Amino acid sequence: MTTDALYAPARSQVAPRKRATGKAGIRWNTAAGHVVMIVLSILCLFPVYWMIVSSFRPANAIFETTLWPSAASLDNYVHAINAIPIGTMLLNTFLVSSIVTIVQLFTGLLAAYAFARWRFPFDKIIYTLIALTWLVPFQVVMIPNYLLVADLGLLDSIAALILPHFAGALAVLMLAQAMRSFPAEIIEAARMDGAKSWRILWEVIAPNLRGTIASLAILLFISTWNEYFWPLLLSRTPENSVVQIGIQMFITSEGTAWGPLMAASTLASLPILFIYVVLQRQVIQSFMKSGIR
């Protein structure tokens, strides 16, 4: 007892010092991590800020290096709106992105349920082929898709921008993986209650995959909104085109109208920025769940 009494204070004095040192180290690591994240955030946001600021610069000051224009003006926005039907293009882009997102979610859910819950001949081979299509560049299938759309008489139409995107490998892969991890007991209980596959999919599985479906919808919408090459190949008139093609119209052989281009780019970015601000958590989760791995 005497020995314990003598050494007890010493132990009680040493332990707090170690804990204090450990806490200080954690605080420094946390502060260093925050500093790194702040620097990276500035590097990521600065191009967006510069685009917005440049859209307010007059033509004779477009190459100023000040962080705020010396004479802010809305002339670039007026010029952009008058030069191209940007309102119609934004509406077309939103329409195409929304329809593609809805259709790919629908076809993806059907295909994913078949691969996750059914067994049929060559199912693994078909699933592998679908996965491999995700690795095929668009340029490989560009000419066949173009010839198909031309044979259907859909050139220079909104339908032509939507038709090749009725199904996508990303939707099938993400949803199939989520359905495979869905508890089989719940599905069996639904079957015992007399539910068929259609009802199980839409009333049991889909409502419980809202997070995955929302994340996938955000990814599909943003990807379609940023699509450029396929609309460039099909579009003939600005009224039947999307906003990405409208932005490209400010780049000509005679030069680049930087002010109107920045104004049009800002207007084209506003819907996506709004979606990101409102659905920030879902956007981050969508990139974590999608493979962007």
Results as ranks from 00 to 15, higher is better:
L232H: 06
N145I: 11
V278N: 00
A20W: 15
P9N: 10
S12Q: 12
A71C: 01
I158D: 01
I200F: 07
P16T: 10
Q244F: 04
T266G: 01
K124F: 02
D75C: 02
A184H: 10
R57V: 07
W68I: 11
M192L: 15
A263T: 12
V39W: 05
A32V: 14
E185V: 09
A15P: 00
F94M: 14
A83T: 15
A263C: 05
P238N: 07
P16A: 07
L273N: 03
P47A: 08
N240D: 08
L267E: 06
H34A: 12
T133E: 05
A159G: 09
I26F: 10
R19H: 03
E203T: 15
S235F: 03
W198N: 03
L67S: 05
A169N: 05
R119Y: 10
V283E: 03
S73K: 03
S70K: 11
F287L: 15
P144Y: 04
I222T: 07
R117V: 11
V36E: 03
A206V: 14
E185D: 11
F56Q: 06
V78S: 05
A150Y: 07
A167P: 00
A184M: 11
T237G: 00
A214D: 01
I86Q: 04
Y146V: 11
H34Q: 13
A8K: 10
V283L: 11
M288D: 07
S12Y: 13
K289P: 00
R199V: 13
F274S: 09
Q244E: 04
T2Y: 04
N226W: 02
L132G: 01
I218V: 09
D151S: 14
P69I: 10
T65Y: 05
T65L: 13
W258R: 06
S269C: 10
I26T: 09
V141G: 01
A114V: 09
L6P: 00
I275S: 03
F166I: 15
V278E: 00
W258Q: 02
T3N: 06
A178M: 03
L148K: 04
L147G: 00
G168W: 12
L110A: 05
D75R: 08
P85T: 12
F63E: 08
E254W: 13
R293A: 11
L232G: 05
I38P: 00
L154Y: 04
L152I: 11
R293H: 06
P9M: 14
A111P: 03
P207H: 10
